[in-house]
């Protein structure tokens, strides 16, 4: 399973989302869009918006820390 989290350091829901994935033992790539301009561009492209966090699980895009949606994709 391929998981990417687009986040910033100041966004509380980003921290919660990452902590949640860690608690579930799901490894992920963390992209800090405040320092990674390419990452920001990628996030805009895949999600069509600029709010963080954006969680991409095997090409499925979740905007915001949405636990039920994350669970549905990681428990597939």
């Amino acid at each position: 399973m391929n998981i990417k989290v687009f986040s910033t350091q100041t966004c509380p829901y980003c921290h919660m989302a990452k902590d949640y994935l860690k608690a579930k033992n799901m490894p992920f790539v963390d992209v800090d869009v405040s320092s990674d301009a390419q990452g920001l561009e990628e996030m805009r492209k895949v999600s069509g918006q600029m709010g963080v966090p954006v969680i991409v699980i095997d090409n499925q895009v979740i905007v915001g820390f949405n636990k039920p949606k994350i669970d549905a994709l990681i428990n597939k």
């Binding site: 910033t8 869009v33 600029m50 709010g51 963080v52």
Partner: peptide, 8 residues
Amino acid sequence: TCDGPVYK
């Protein structure tokens, strides 16, 4: 606080 850094 949340989104500011995105607009750097």
